[in-house]
Every structure is written in C-alpha cells, then in structure tokens.
Write a protein that binds this DNA or RNA. Structure first.
Lengths: 141, 141
DNA sequence: GATACAATCTACAGTAGCTGTAGAAGCAAG
DNA sequence: CTTGCTTCTACAGCTACTGTAGATTGTATC
C-alpha cells in the first residue's frame, strides 16, 4: 500500500532488469513466491524479492537451468538441510564452466586478432570463419 | 550409395555429436543444404557436411544465434564478398564474450573455494548460494 | 468531478531452438 | 523370410521466455 518498503511489479522489473511478463512467469512456475496483493489485486514486492530475482537472473545468464536454480533456491529456503546437494549441483557445473571459459578464450583471442586486420578484405581470407571452424575442429588445425 | 566418402545421417550425427532430428531441423531452416538422396530417399552426407555441421554446433555452443551463424555461413559460401560483415558480427560478440568470461571466472573461483569446505555443512553456511548471489549482486558485497 | 494516460491485471498465442513420438518403409544379418 | 535397426515424414511437446488483447486501476491534470 503506502508501505515505503513495498513496491509494484514494474519497480521490481526495473531494479532487476527483468521484464514484467517474465516476473509473472517466474511466479507461475514457482521460482518466485506468490506475492502479497493490494486491495485491487496488484502484486507488491520487497527487497527480498529483488535479491531472489537477481539470483535467478544471474543464475540463468550463467547457464543454470530453471530446475537447478529451483533446487538452489529450495536449499536456501530451507537452510537446515545438508548443503552437499548444493555443492553437487555446483560441481556439476564447474567442469562445464571451465570448458566454456577455455573455448570462449580461444574464440576471444581469434576475434581480437581478426578485428584489426579483417576490414576490407575478402571473406575467403577472413579469419573469423576460420577461427570459429578452428575452435570447432581443433583436430583439423 | 556405395561411395566410401558418402554416409548416412546417423553417421553424421555420431561424428558431430548431433541428434538426427537436429540435423533434419538444420536442413529445414536452411543451415545445412538439402543433401543428395539414395534411390530410396535416404540422405547422404560427406566430409564437407561434417565440417559445416561442426561449425554450426560450435557456433551455437558459443552463444551465436542461428541467424548469426547463417550469415557467417553465407559469407563463407560466397567468399568473394567483403568480410567486414563477418568482422562486425564477430565484434558484436566480443564484448559479450569478455563479460561472460569474467562472470564465469568469478563464479568458478567461488565454486572452487566452496567445493572442499562445503560438504556436510548446513545450507545456511553454504557459500555456493552466497557466491551466485554475490555474482548477481556485486553492489551488495 | 471528468478526463486522459500509464501501469497493472488475466489469459493466451507466438518465438527460438531444439527433442521426442508415431507409423510406415528400407535394409542387413541370420 | 523374419527380426531388428535405421531412416523417412509429419507433427506434437519442451524450455524459457516474449508479446498482445482487452479490461481494470491509479494518478495527474483540467
């Protein structure tokens, strides 16, 4: 209502860089709890929702699936539970994360090398395609 | 047919780690050319298809959209064209790639730090969630 | 108080990029 | 010739959103 610590869905959207529809979607699939409503039925949020949603968005952008995020959130919702489960989820990601970093770095250096030299050349001589193909097929290099 | 350099969709799938349905899907959306068919209508592929599909798969796993891959492939299909376009596509990705690397590295070191200490503890003390939340909300750290 | 305009509501359709399934046909081995 | 795997087409389903329609509410202005 007029509680200063209490704000609307649009504010939550702005604070977290999330679309309003996406917030409602997360509520629907149970990532966000059903919020309090005003007398007229509008959702109201607080600082805890900002943290939770930021957690979700960053998890997503780092490649965690909604289900993995769900289990991490469930864990933090029930802090008495053993956290080996969280560590297991995290470990599953570690290898994948390291591989992604390595491949992104390979691509990055290829792109950096190309950026200066490529403009105006012919595609036949273009190293971008070569670079990605090379990342794809190191055995052919 | 009995051409040794010519193989079936299942072989292409195995050689590239792609699902058969996905190969047909790429053909449908124009990423892969319509292949030759045997008399009975089965698709036949060759080494060039393996390279092209590997390029596509690696591009995808590195975060390139199908449309971006399409334009890179179009470029390599018409090597006489100017490659500034390819460089532009690449440059658009460079910034994003660097940001991803940075965030993945932040998460990586958080996960590495957690891995040894976390098992058996309580979720309340678990640093995995904290770590991801931290990556999510650096301003709160 | 009337009016305009933005924000919100529900409900549902559409998108990207696959993935799975059904049912028929082809092919290779025993 | 039968068993069993692969392939075929066609289409439905999935994940994670994103957009749109039409109604309602809240707010600022006259």
């Amino acid at each position: 209502m007029s509680d200063p610590a209490c704000f609307a869905i649009g504010d939550l959207a702005r604070q977290t860089g999330t679309k309003v529809n996406t917030i409602r979607f997360y509520e629907e699939i149970g990532l966000l709890p059903c919020p309090m409503r005003t007398a007229s039925g509008r959702r109201t949020y607080n600082a805890a929702d900002v943290r939770r949603l930021s957690f979700i968005r960053h998890g997503r952008s780092l490649g965690f699936s909604v289900d993995e995020i769900r289990s991490l959130l469930a864990l933090s919702d029930q802090p008495e539970r053993d956290c080996g489960e969280a560590a297991a989820i995290a470990r599953q990601h570690l290898r994948d994360i390291e591989e992604r970093i390595a491949r992104l770095q390979t691509l990055r250096s290829a792109l950096v090398g190309v950026a200066a030299s490529c403009d105006g050349g012919r595609a036949a001589d273009c190293r971008v395609i070569e670079a990605i193909a090379g990342v794809a097929l190191p055995a052919n290099a």
